[in-house]
């Protein structure tokens, strides 16, 4: 997704977000990630100034103090940035892939089902429907390595066990990771 992404070419404009809009955003975020309610004021303080950075392909980045917090494509669900997931790892739905998958994810591949269902991986009990934004952890590691969106529901992943299970939106080491907003 962010394989090629440079501040110079892909960023079109930056605008400050009105505080009323900011409030609306916060409720939307809490709706999408109910667990975030506890910490939302920490992530987006009332006094803080959010900045929307608009990029190519109708992508907007919500940033604060030069750090990307969330990204959103058109009107799709919000996707937390990886650095945010690292700070608040338990507040997002998550899955764990096996060790063999790490290498591929870090070079930008989507996650295939077998990587999610094999021995080293672990999936939560509950079902995530298609489109759920999930943080992706890896076997033997404590920090997340990618954030993605379910391409099929988690039940299907377990049953079908073939094809793309999660579409990776951003992973460590990609263009967004190394983006310098300064």
């Amino acid at each position: 997704m962010f394989k090629k992404f440079t501040a110079k070419e892909d960023i079109h404009s930056r605008t400050n977000v009105k505080s009323s809009v900011q409030r609306g955003l916060k409720t939307k975020l809490v709706n999408q990630f109910p667990k975030l309610e506890e910490v939302i004021d920490e992530i987006i303080p009332k006094k803080g100034q959010l900045i929307v950075v608009k990029c190519t392909d109708r992508l907007s980045l919500y940033t604060m103090e030069n750090e990307v917090l969330f990204l959103q494509r058109f009107d799709d669900p919000f996707i937390p940035s990886l650095r945010l997931v690292h700070k608040y790892p338990t507040y997002f739905p998550s899955v764990k892939v096996d060790r063999g998958a790490i290498k591929f994810i870090l070079s930008g591949a989507n996650i295939m089902c077998p990587g999610l269902t094999s021995k080293g991986a672990s999936l939560p009990e509950e079902n995530y429907p298609v489109g759920t934004v999930v943080a992706i952890f890896a076997e033997g590691k404590d920090t997340a390595l990618a954030v993605g969106k379910m391409a099929m529901s988690l039940d299907d992943v377990k049953k079908v066990n073939k094809g793309i299970g999660i579409e990776v939106e951003t992973h460590i080491g990609d263009g967004l990771w190394s983006l310098d907003l300064d």
Binding site: K87, K141, T143, I172
Partner: peptide
């Protein structure tokens, strides 16, 4: 805060456990 502070590698900017893939 409830935020964790994560250590990032000074060379490749990854969290250190992922350096081996860098």
């Amino acid at each position: 805060t409830k935020a964790l502070s994560v250590l990032y590698c000074g060379v490749c900017t990854f969290p250190p456990e992922y350096c081996e893939f860098g």
